[in-house]
Design a protein around this nucleic acid. Sequence first.
DNA 1: CCCTAAGTGGACTCACTAGTCCGCTTACCG
DNA 2: CGGTAAGCGGACTAGTGAGTCCACTTAGGG
Lengths: 168, 168
Amino acid sequence: MSLTLRADARRNLDRLLAAAAECFAEHGVDASIDEIAKRAGIGHATVFRRFPTKEALLTAVVLERIRELAAAAEAALADPDAGQAFDGFFRAAAEVYARNRALVERFDSCIETEEVAALEVAVGRLVWRAQRAGALRRDITALDVMELVPAASRHPDVILDGLRARPS
Amino acid sequence: MSLTLRADARRNLDRLLAAAAECFAEHGVDASIDEIAKRAGIGHATVFRRFPTKEALLTAVVLERIRELAAAAEAALADPDAGQAFDGFFRAAAEVYARNRALVERFDSCIETEEVAALEVAVGRLVWRAQRAGALRRDITALDVMELVPAASRHPDVILDGLRARPS
DNA sequence: CCCTAAGTGGACTCACTAGTCCGCTTACCG
DNA sequence: CGGTAAGCGGACTAGTGAGTCCACTTAGGG
């Protein structure tokens, strides 16, 4: 047994993941395995050799998107302006959600994963910094922010205004 | 031929609509006709005698919810405080959305109906009054409000704050 | 270059769902 | 009451989608 895939298998796996990401983003969890396999240019049985169920493939794709969100949060932390850092991440995350139906539909089922834990740590830091800088209301947690992101794809300005610290 | 249903048929239709409302609210558009018929205590062929397709039944149920929203908006107009009237409607509408998956999923496909037109007129009036009273930002339309309602089921306070007129 | 284990995909099964059909039941009019 | 049309629902069809199987192909080590 080897831990590395044969070259053709590796190529097919890459294509599969790319096709699955597209299909799930576009059609949500209802995207069919047949459609994904077709788009990847492979037979549908090949999908089940890599992932035991459709659910497993879906989870893999969604976790990949969550890792992307976490990376965006980490990147935002580099911005010295805490308010801008938060806003930038929030808008970027809203875009990712807007382009990924399956992410919206399945984020909740990933809550117990390392990936979401890492995301929450990074967002928590963004939130804390922005609050200290007076750019974000205090009665808000990282979890609240993540729940508001999908809503923000339509009217981010309104929601960001709602999140800013009250003039008090 | 008569325009009134036989007593048993009338009763079954009422049960059907009630069961469909529950199932679509709970499971969204994926609720099956079999499940609905079972909950209504009728055979599934009876469903198709009243509604030609599942889509037609779904639309009937969603329009009913939209009429409810319009009624809530009309009721809110009775409140002399324009800001309170708007807030009250907004929160009530968010609750209706939170309890009805199919409404979220199918509101868009009803946009060309009289029901939605009536809803927009009523919400338009709420918005206009609240803006004149300085309780709502000016760069917002009734349509924007309706797009924000489903988002507001989670954190209505944040979104209402975002909607209030800037202190400027 | 050849042997073989890893990899492949077409053809299956099985479960489920929308929609149809038709012989039986029942409300209700006269 | 009794006849009948309106109403009923079980059994059927057709289509789809997840997941399995197995005879065939091929990468790549020796």
